[in-house]
Simulated scan of single mutants.
Amino acid sequence: MNHLQLEKDIEHLENVITHISAEDRIPLSYWRNRINLVSGAPLVPAQASRVKRLNAALSALEERQKT
C-alpha cells in the first residue's frame, strides 16, 4: 500500500468511526478488517498513533455491542 493511499484510508476511517454505531447496516467486523489492514502496513509514528486511537474507538463500540 503506498503512502498516499494509506493516508487516505486512515483519514476515511477517522471520519467513519466517529459516526458509526453497532446498529449500522455495515457490521463492525467490516471496520475491524479495514483497521487491521491499515495496521499491517508500514506506518510512520504519527500514523501508528492515529491507528491506535481508531482501534481503541472501535474496540469500545465492539464492547458496547456485546452488552
Results as ranks from 00 to 15, higher is better:
Glu63Leu: 13
Glu7Thr: 13
Asn15Met: 07
Arg34Met: 14
Glu62Met: 12
Val38His: 00
Asn55Gln: 12
Ile10Thr: 05
Gln47Val: 07
Leu4Pro: 06
Leu58Asp: 12
Ser29Asp: 11
Leu4Thr: 11
Val38Asn: 00
Leu13Arg: 01
Asn15Lys: 12
Ala22Thr: 07
Ala48Ile: 06
Leu13Tyr: 05
Met1Asn: 02
Val38Gln: 00
Ala57Ser: 15
Thr18Gln: 07
Ser21Glu: 05
Arg32Glu: 07
Tyr30Gly: 04
Leu58Cys: 14
Lys8Ser: 06
Met1Gly: 05
Glu11Gln: 07
Ile10Cys: 02
Glu14Cys: 05
Pro27Asn: 04
Asp24Ile: 07
Glu14Leu: 05
Ser21Val: 02
Asn36Leu: 02
Arg53Ile: 08
Leu37Gln: 05
Ala57Val: 08
Leu37Val: 03
Ser49Arg: 15
Glu63Gly: 04
Pro45Ser: 04
Leu43Pro: 00
Val51Leu: 00
Asn2Thr: 03
Glu62Asp: 09
Ala48Phe: 06
Val44Met: 10
Glu62Pro: 01
Asp9Cys: 01
Val38Ile: 11
Ile35Lys: 02
Ile35Met: 06
Glu11Asn: 04
Val16Ala: 13
Ala46Trp: 10
Ile10Glu: 09
Glu23Cys: 02
Leu43Asn: 00
Leu37Asn: 02
Asp24Gly: 15
Ile10Lys: 01
Pro42Asn: 11
Glu63Ile: 13
Glu14Gln: 08
Ala57Tyr: 06
Ile10Phe: 03
Asp9Met: 09
Ile26Gly: 04
Leu13Asn: 01
Lys8Arg: 07
Ile20His: 11
Thr18Pro: 04
Arg32Leu: 13
